[in-house]
Every structure is written in structure tokens, then in C-alpha cells.
Design a protein around this nucleic acid. Structure first.
Lengths: 246, 246
DNA sequence: ACAAAAGTGTTGCTTCTACACCCATGA
DNA sequence: TCATGGGTGTAGAAGCAACACTTTTGT
């Protein structure tokens, strides 16, 4: 930024802006990508579904506000919210995106493992918080449908060149579970042996948990367990097939 | 966002936020990456260099404000500003990033071809606008050094998997010029024949201008001319070498 | 003739893809 | 013993890196 408002630095010289945060929090559950939504308890859009979020307080950064609102509005466990990897998506600033007043919203994306349904009784304004599958997402308040669409595009391409997919998995996971994350988010079918090799030969993507194994589908050979490794980028990337394979 | 301020919708109920935009506009000139900076004419940081930018007006989106401020503060040609590809970098919202008041800033990145020095006399608050090489960038006002660093990281990786490099080139360019863009931004040396093949075999990256050729260094064989093609993504990507080759 | 820059060809290596096949477990 | 999911092997194709070599211009 640069330059001051012409009359000087009077903070009240302009029509004020409100600054909010919105969160697109995703998880993979039962072969479908789900997003965490709340049902609004107040006007405008009372009763409609919306992304969790809310106003940034005077002494907060957007990141801090995002974490606070997520904890308040959804029943996500304390620890999950604290450790969450939040990533800025972009900022939405169209003048009429909120009917009340001028509201600029900083949108974030986050990925979490499949968790139990959040406590139905969130605090704050949210009457209800639920995971809903993207395929049958209801109409959303404000411009949240657009934000959600942008967030989905972002995470789809992020899986290609980052190690973020492990964020969808519990602390210890099988390669089959990791594969399912990719297949679900990309809506494709990947070759299991090749996927396996790619993941294991990328240094730092995953680390084996020695000796550990787990049965997944009830049947079949128990699968070895892995933890997320220290790597964050995927070089070279894991490209998704172009044609819709599914 | 969701939920209203507790007392209702009174826009003045909270300490107001100001919303600004900041722009990191890059060009490649003489083998060095340059950024467009202005010298501030007012307090705070009067006399210091800063990224161009300014306040978002009540009826503007951040994108509109960015374009307007860029036109006002720097002498960039009308047409260049209108056609510019602006991309949001991220939003900076630390509470004390501006000493005057609470200011949240939406940062943008843009790439332009090597242009003549902007008119020294920008309008608005900017006393002066200049291209400065990144290597010898001065201290910047506010948190602009951090924004600039983030922007640089972003464009470096964007060259890998998008066709954005052509935005640094004039409408018609040689492959040698495009190569120079990559080598400058990445600070590496690339193999010319391999680079050439990669660019030409990526559908839609560049289009040949039939029959056209241009002498570049004064000497040597005239180079064929190309235009930017319709493609925007680079699949598969053009990965930069890891070790600092230069 | 020489230097400089553009452009072509070739070879070997690495990576990816497709698919066949074996292993461990529950029903 | 069969179905199911985990895991290994391999041959062909594709892509990439390195480098030798040809072409066209100005001096």
C-alpha cells in the first residue's frame, strides 16, 4: 500500500470495510470429497448453508481469525484446529458480495482426515455444522459457491506437486488410503503399483512405520503403515491423467 | 464469512479496517529481474521506496483498485495496464503492518515486457516510479520486502507449470528471448536445444509467426518469431534444475 | 575467415505406463 | 478354496539431458 487517505489518517474518514475470513475445509469420506458447512442462524441467508467463517477482530490477523472461527463455529477438536495447515486461497472483494455492508473476505483452504461428525451445537452464530459431499452440496450463502469451486480447483492441482494429500489421512495410514485420496479428489482411477512406487521413491513423502500393519477392508492382506514425511513439495510432480478416467 | 457483528449491522460498530492493494510488477531487463517501485511522497515512510498500490475505494473490487493505482502511480501505458494479467498473491493482515491504522492489503503480481522507464512524474502520492533490479533493491516501506520476496518465489515456480513466461516478452519474440526469461528468473543456465524442443512440442505454448525473423545480438543467424499461444498450463511442466547451475 | 547466435540430430539414461503375477488374510 | 486387497516384477514407450554439429548472419 502507499499514500494516506487525502484528509490525513482519520480512520473514520472512509466508509468502513469489514474484513472476514471464510474457510473451505475438506475431507475424504466414503469415496467422496466432503466440505465442512454450517447452517446460518442469522440474517442474511438465515437457514442457508455457508462456509464457516466470520469477522476478523481488531487485533487479529486473518490466519488467527480463521482458526478462531473454525473452533467456534464447528465442533472440530481443539487439537485439530491448532495443528491445521491453513492456506490462503484468495481474497474476495466484489463490492456487493454482502448485502449488509462492504465486506472483504479472505478465503482459506484446509484439509483434514475423516473425522467424526462435528458437535451439532457449534458456538457463535452457527446453528449446525456438518460434512456434506461436494456432489450434492446445497446452494450456499453469499458468493460461497464460487469460493468453494475455486478451493476445489486449488486442491486438485495441489495434490499434483505437493505432499498435501497426507493431510487427508490419519497420522498413520496405508498406501491404499493415500491412493484413495488421490482417486477421490481427482475422480480418476490410478494404477496401484505405479502409484506405490512413485510415493515410495519420492524422498520424504512418507515414512514407513516399522512393523506396523493394519487390515483395511476386513479382508485381504494387512497393509503396512506410513506416516507423513518431512517433504512438502513433490519434485517431480505426480501428474493426474488428463481424460476423465472414471 | 458468516454471522453479523453482535450488535447488529452497524457498519461503524467496529474499529474500521482500511483495505489496500499492493502490486509486485516484474520485468526482465538486461539479464536481471526488475521490479517496479515508487518513492513515497508522504508519511509514513516518506522518501522510502515501496510497491505501488493504495486504498481500495468504497465501490471498487481489489482487482479494479489495483489497476487504477497502477495507472495513477506509475507511468505505465494505458493499454499495458488495461491488458495486464493480474494475479492475486495473498493478503497481508498482520495487525501492526501499518503504523497509522488497521490496514489489510491484498497483494497482486503482474509480469510485463521490458518497457521504457515509466514517466518519472506519476500522479497521486508517488513522487517517482522506477524499475529497480531485485539484486540491489533498497529497503522497502511497510512489509513490502516480505511481499516482494513472496512474489518472487511465486513467479519462479509459476514458470515451471504455466505459460506465463511469455508475459515477460513483447507480442512477438524469439525463442532466445524466452530462454533468457527463464534463465533470468531462475538464475540458471538451460540447454538451448532442449529448451527449444520443450517449448515447441508443448501444444499452444507458442505459435510461429510465419516468415518473420529478427536479428537479436546484431550478429548471428536471424531468429524466427513467435507469439504467445492459447495454452495457459504447461503439462508436463518445465522443471528447473535443482542445484544453482549459475 | 571468424565469431556469434540460431537451429538440428543423436545417443544414452531415467522415468512412466501397462499389465502380469505373487502374497496374506477372512469368509 | 475363493474373493479381496496388498505388494513385486518387467518390458515397452516416452521424456529428458548432454553434447556434437550445421546454418546464417555481421565484421
Amino acid at each position: 500500500m502507499s499514500g494516506a487517505p487525502e484528509p490525513g489518517y482519520d480512520p473514520y474518514a472512509f466508509e468502513p470495510f469489514a474484513v472476514t475470513v471464510d474457510l473451505a475445509v475438506f475431507t475424504v469420506r466414503g469415496g467422496a470429497l466432503h466440505v465442512l458447512l454450517i447452517r446460518r442462524g442469522q440474517e442474511p441467508y438465515a437457514g442457508a448453508w455457508a462456509l464457516p467463517g466470520g469477522f476478523v477482530l481488531p487485533r487479529e490477523s486473518a490466519e488467527t481469525a480463521a482458526r478462531r472461527e473454525l473452533a467456534e463455529e464447528t465442533g472440530l477438536p481443539e487439537q485439530v484446529v491448532a495443528d491445521l495447515h491453513l492456506e490462503q486461497l484468495r481474497t474476495y472483494s466484489e463490492p456487493d458480495r454482502d448485502p449488509r455492508m462492504r465486506v472483504v473476505s479472505v478465503a482459506f483452504t484446509a484439509l483434514v482426515p475423516d473425522l467424526p461428525e462435528p458437535a451439532a451445537e457449534g458456538g457463535g452464530d452457527a446453528a449446525q455444522a456438518r460434512w456434506l459431499p461436494l456432489g450434492q452440496a446445497p446452494d450456499l450463502a453469499f458468493d460461497h459457491a464460487a469460493i468453494l469451486a475455486d478451493a476445489r480447483i486449488r486442491i486438485r492441482s495441489k495434490l499434483e506437486y505437493t505432499c498435501l494429500a497426507t493431510a487427508f489421512c490419519p497420522p498413520e495410514f496405508t498406501l491404499g488410503e493415500l491412493l484413495a485420496v488421490y482417486e477421490t479428489v481427482w475422480d480418476t482411477v490410478l494404477d496401484r503399483p505405479n502409484f506405490r512406487r512413485k510415493v515410495l521413491t519420492t524422498p520424504g513423502f512418507v515414512e514407513a512405520v516399522p512393523g506396523a500393519a493394519r487390515l483395511t477392508g476386513g479382508r485381504g492382506k494387512p497393509a503396512a503403515l506410513y506416516r507423513a514425511g518431512p517433504a512438502t513439495a513433490l519434485h517431480p510432480p505426480l501428474l493426474r491423467p488428463e481424460g476423465p478416467t472414471r
